[in-house]
Design a protein around this nucleic acid. Structure first.
Length: 467
RNA sequence: GGCGCGGUGCCCAAGUGGACUAAGGGAGGGGUUUGCAAAACCUCGAUUCGUCGGUUCGAAUCCGACCCGCGCCUCCA
């Protein structure tokens, strides 16, 4: 049985999708005004783990992720670069897709853009006006939160206890109450706007998610994810809009992932600890290792990103990849052992129950490492057979359908020049010219290539370049 | 002020009343193996789970107080 911590109930609870075997998932996507940073990717990776695990468990998943391509930041950015909003956001949208591919994140089924769903938003805003949940002022439309009884049910915030920040008072738009929020912002000089039934203007921050989620997933859907910082006000407001409009429950399970910090502090550009994926790739960080690191802390814990942690993740992951490699590059006697198949079954069961427990990766991973140690021990005792190695590899690869951290079979290759060096060294070793052999090994090590002499020949592997 | 998170060995991190004389990964010490390495295997590392009290036959796990670190409260994953 799968269980998730639902922000709405504040508890871990059993997961039952609305439709048996199908999960409808909405995840808050990027505002495409800049390159995404590793904190963003932590959230997307958590969502990817969630989705891959659901798929692994046999669910069909209908996944929608929005792209916010009109808001204050995108408008400002486009203006600063002197290009159209569309041109500007396209650049970062392309970058976003590149990055999620780099990190091996499954594509969503739909990536609706806010600018292409204005009419859906207008329809909801009109409905909210008709039902009395919204009011118009100076051409803008606001949501009157006092009309929505359940306001605060997600974030557990009591509005009368909320402190009013200075930012609210300085809002450029006129609202009746400080906590009311804009559904529609009346057009402003020099800003993009749409001519609509509710007048010229552009959508407020929250309405796109209400509109696009219901358009693709229906009024009620199973899971909505995002970062904790979205709980209030973004998701609270989505609930207010959607439930007031449809009269139905909006989302059944809210899953929020915690933040990533860097060296114990919040990531910020002024502190110089702000990393985009691209920054890390420039430092020769292997995206698989980054993926493994960001994935291997439970999503509801704060993750402290450090380069030391990255190194640890790298070594840890290497243990799995070496294991797979060894299974494929040693000879084993033909046959099959019951012990191994049983071990695989046990490991699989523990892996699944770990992830079933609110995606507890720290509980799901250890069985894999335990299995690896046990099998390595059995290999030494010559109790592993050919069929076992196939079963083990199939199993590890199926686990990797969820983790997606192992290299592709032919990911790495060496230049022919380096291959010649390796051949030369093999010859030297045969002739017991160890001095030359060691010199070549050192030379390759300087280039970030480790050579291992095994019973079945030489193995090379590329490690991170030494700085 | 409101809401919430966390403090487990050198580092990361599970475990939330009894099989814990506390998983797993990384680093480190010792050994097996190896031409030497690497990998792999064996082995050693917390009488102890922020502190102090309490409940209990029994607590890292429950209760109370306190200390420390952190997040959100209309830019934010």
């Amino acid at each position: 049985m799968i269980q998730f911590f639902n922000t709405l109930s504040g508890k871990v609870q059993p997961f039952h999708p609305l439709k048996k075997n199908q999960v409808k998932l909405y995840t808050c996507g990027p505002t495409v005004y800049d390159y995404a940073h590793i904190g963003n990717f932590r959230a997307y990776l958590f969502e990817d783990l969630l989705k891959r695990f659901l798929l692994f468990q046999g669910y069909r998943v209908l996944h929608v992720m929005n792209l916010t391509d009109v808001d204050d930041k995108t408008i400002k950015g486009a203006r600063a670069e002197g290009i159209s909003l569309k041109e500007f956001t396209q650049k970062y949208t392309d970058a976003f897709f590149q990055d999620i591919d780099t990190l091996n994140i499954h594509r969503a089924d739909y990536y609706p853009r806010a600018t292409q769903h204005i009419s859906s938003m207008v329809r909801i805003i009109k409905g909210l006006l008709q039902k009395g949940y919204a009011y118009e002022k100076d051409g803008s439309v606001y949501y009157d939160i006092s009309k929505f009884k359940d306001y605060g049910k997600l974030s557990k915030i009591k509005m009368h206890k909320l402190k009013t920040g200075t930012r609210i008072e300085s809002d450029e738009y006129e609202k009746e109450s400080a906590h009311d929020f804009a559904l529609w912002k009346y057009k402003k000089e020099g800003e993009p706007y749409w001519e609509t039934e509710i007048g010229p203007g552009r959508p407020g921050w929250h309405i796109e998610c209400s509109a696009m989620s219901s358009q693709y997933l229906g009024d009620t859907f199973d899971i909505h994810c995002g970062g904790v910082d979205n709980i209030f006000p973004h998701h609270e407001n989505e609930i207010a809009q959607s439930e007031a409009y449809s009269g139905k429950e909006f989302v059944r399970y809210w899953l929020h992932c915690h933040h990533l910090i860097v060296n114990g502090e919040k990531m910020s550009k002024s502190k110089g600890n702000f990393y985009t994926l691209r920054d890390l790739l420039e430092r020769d960080v292997n995206p698989r290792v980054l993926r493994f690191l960001l994935l291997s802390t439970h999503y509801r814990k704060i993750l402290n990103f450090t380069f030391e942690a990255l190194d640890q993740a790298s070594t840890s992951l290497q243990r799995i990849t070496d294991f797979i490699y060894n299974l494929g590059h040693q000879s084993f006697p033909s046959g099959e052992s019951k012990d191994i198949s049983q071990l695989i079954q046990n490991t699989k069961q523990k892996f699944i129950s770990g992830l079933s427990n609110d995606l507890n990766i720290s509980q799901a991973l250890p069985p894999i490492f335990e299995m690896i140690r046990k099998v390595n021990r059995l290999i030494k005792q010559k109790k592993v057979y050919q069929k076992d190695t196939q079963n083990l590899r199939t199993f590890i690869h199926s686990v990797d359908n969820v983790l997606a951290v192992l290299p592709q079979e032919k990911e790495e290759s060496l230049s022919s020049e380096l291959m010649e060096k390796i051949k030369l060294r093999q010859k030297a070793r045969k002739e017991k010219n160890y001095e030359l052999a060691d010199r070549i090994r050192d030379e390759l090590y300087q280039k970030g290539i480790i050579l291992e002499d095994t019973k079945n020949g030489v193995r090379w592997k590329i490690i991170k370049k030494k700085k």
